[in-house]
Design a protein around this nucleic acid. Structure first.
Lengths: 337, 337
DNA sequence: ATTCTTCTTGTAAACGTTTGCAGTCTTTGC
DNA sequence: GCAAAGACTGCAAACGTTTACAAGAAGAAT
């Protein structure tokens, strides 16, 4: 193998054919004759030729990569979705460019920037707080949302958020709880709204009261879970169980109340959402709603590749099933409640 | 703005200059006259021109991206390093391609593949189990290791692992522990070796016994921490304190012993390594050694960019400070020990 | 006035592919 | 035996930049 890697010209020379034939052998082998095909493949092997992706992309007017826009890379949740995305994109020959929407000043502007920059053949948006308005640009590359979503303009892959919330509340009710609180995600987030709605609807169906002061505002982070715990601790009339809109918040909540001497689930029951890896390693194990994050990523990638190949700009969204995971953080309410 | 984005030709025409001048205005403005420069910049603004990275890369014989090889994307630890890498690479105009070494069959082969593929201007390796032999290829792009390292052939960014271990053991000893165990990382890993060595040396300096059966084998995961806990629970003569080579293992360990009714730190003291986000949210808060992961990523990226720009193939490695974080998972040993 | 710098700009040749078009050579149908 | 169809292959023109080289203009030095 040479210092400089072989080009298609080298292969053509060695095989005694034109570069066109080499290119065709590699991209659509069916159109080239058996014997020449073999000769070319041998020459490819001999020279150690690898197609230069940059040149190929330039000629084919594509970039060979997709951009993933996410709010925060340093978050388990997104990392696993990334893994799912990568599992599809890499084999398909697409690179995955990561962009953190939080690091810059104006997230919306960054979205517009990436759409216009022509740096990518498609975008995956994991940050539902971005404004759909930015997407009105003509001739923009296809976009897919994963987990969160932005109206109906953009195809998305999401889970059954309402049903997840209903499962959580139903489990608590079945254990005997009649005072069930909720800790939400950040305001304005679709997940926040949908899960809150699921919680509300489930209480309604079960004939249980929903008290406004039992709905605490969080933002999906552990810190906000801990903050909610402090609010809960200070309450006069505490709910005996809480459904938290994310496992991270549940972790923060449990840690904080436990450090205050409260026992879970004897004194308070907790149900989370996500089933992050740590959930089963806590003490007690965290009862939660599983979202298959790797699958979500993989499906989103497939959806996007479909859009890219067909040139279509819209596609049906997908909803993936959630699963109730029973562990030990939720139990019967304390006596007398 | 047109449907098809403007090319350098369009800008040249609008500004009434040649494409060469446009290119120069954008890359080294100093060589073009003030007045023409302004005209070009105005034309750029008017046409909404953005340079086509693919064409630019082809001409400049580079790819504009670096590949990050990591063992497991779905891991908090790496995600945060990625964030650090991205914070430097993105502003510098480099894309970041993620490759999971575990997903394929032979990790070493994948390293070789990426080195030879010419898909990237440089590589960041986060998986120290790869073999340095793969790097002997001539004319390969520069490589930098982060966290882990591979002999002296490859420049790396790492933390003071031995000192970290010594801090952990020192703290436990100061609390009065004389029976200090250790849970290691996976065999063959440099971090495993170095931290084990730090643990051993610290015990030695303190005149404390080191018993082979108190050194348990783990692999940095929560599961392996839980497994170590089961081994510890079954011991006749248990150490009163453990230093675990990663926080994830400490989480797994604490959860498992707590579920068995053991209290931390009253019955057993625990110190981890990494200071992952959850450490302060556990109950009790996890005492640990902080590694600044975002910094590690950022430094590694800078090191790599340096190598790429200068064309050098080696550079001095960097060692970043660790910090002892005292929380509540380590306390005095039980009476009588 | 002539030659030499110093600045600034344009010309045109790459970079390594892919692909429409046209040409050659077989094969087939009549 | 000839025309038509089919199967392969090569030619050459893109794709959108960057940059070595040359050339022109304007001032400086002789």
């Amino acid at each position: 193998m040479d210092r400089k890697s072989a080009t298609i010209q080298d292969v053509a020379r060695v095989a005694g054919v034109s570069t066109a034939t080499v290119s065709r052998t590699l991209s659509k082998p069916s159109v080239v004759a058996r014997t020449t095909r073999d000769a070319v493949l041998k020459a490819v092997a001999d020279t150690g030729y690898r197609v230069n992706a940059t040149a190929s992309n330039l000629r084919r007017q594509r970039t060979g990569s997709v951009i993933v826009l996410l709010p925060n890379l340093a978050n388990t949740f997104f990392a696993q979705i990334l893994a799912g995305l990568a599992s599809v994109l890499t084999p398909a020959g697409y690179g995955m460019l990561i962009a953190d929407t939080q690091s810059g000043p104006d997230p919306d502007e960054r979205l517009t920037h990436y759409l216009a920059s022509g740096q990518a053949d498609g975008l995956v948006v994991l940050d539902g707080t971005l404004s759909p308005a930015a997407l009105s640009m003509p001739g923009r590359p296809p976009v897919v949302c994963a987990c969160e979503w932005m109206g109906d303009a953009v195809p998305s892959v999401r889970v059954e958020n309402e049903r997840g919330a209903a499962l959580a509340v139903g489990h608590l009710a079945r254990l005997g709880h009649r005072h069930i609180g909720h800790v939400t995600g950040p305001g304005g987030n679709v997940l926040t709204r949908t899960r809150l709605e699921g919680y509300r609807a489930a209480l309604d169906r079960l004939g249980l009261p929903m008290r406004a002061d039992w709905v605490l505002e969080g933002d999906f982070t552990m810190d906000s879970g801990a903050a909610a715990a402090r609010v809960w601790l200070a309450m006069e009339d505490r709910p005996t169980a809480l459904f938290l809109s994310s496992d991270e918040m549940a972790v923060g909540f449990m840690g904080e109340v436990q450090r205050a001497g409260i026992r879970v689930p004897e004194d308070v029951s907790v149900v989370g959402f996500d089933n992050i890896e740590i959930a089963r390693h806590l003490s007690p194990g965290l009862t939660t709603i599983r979202q298959p994050r790797t699958d979500i990523g993989a499906r989103a990638a497939e959806l996007l590749l479909g859009l890219i190949e067909t040139g279509a700009s819209s596609a049906p969204s997908e909803v993936i099933e959630v699963e109730f995971i029973r562990r030990s953080s939720a139990g019967p309410p304390p006596k007398g409640r």
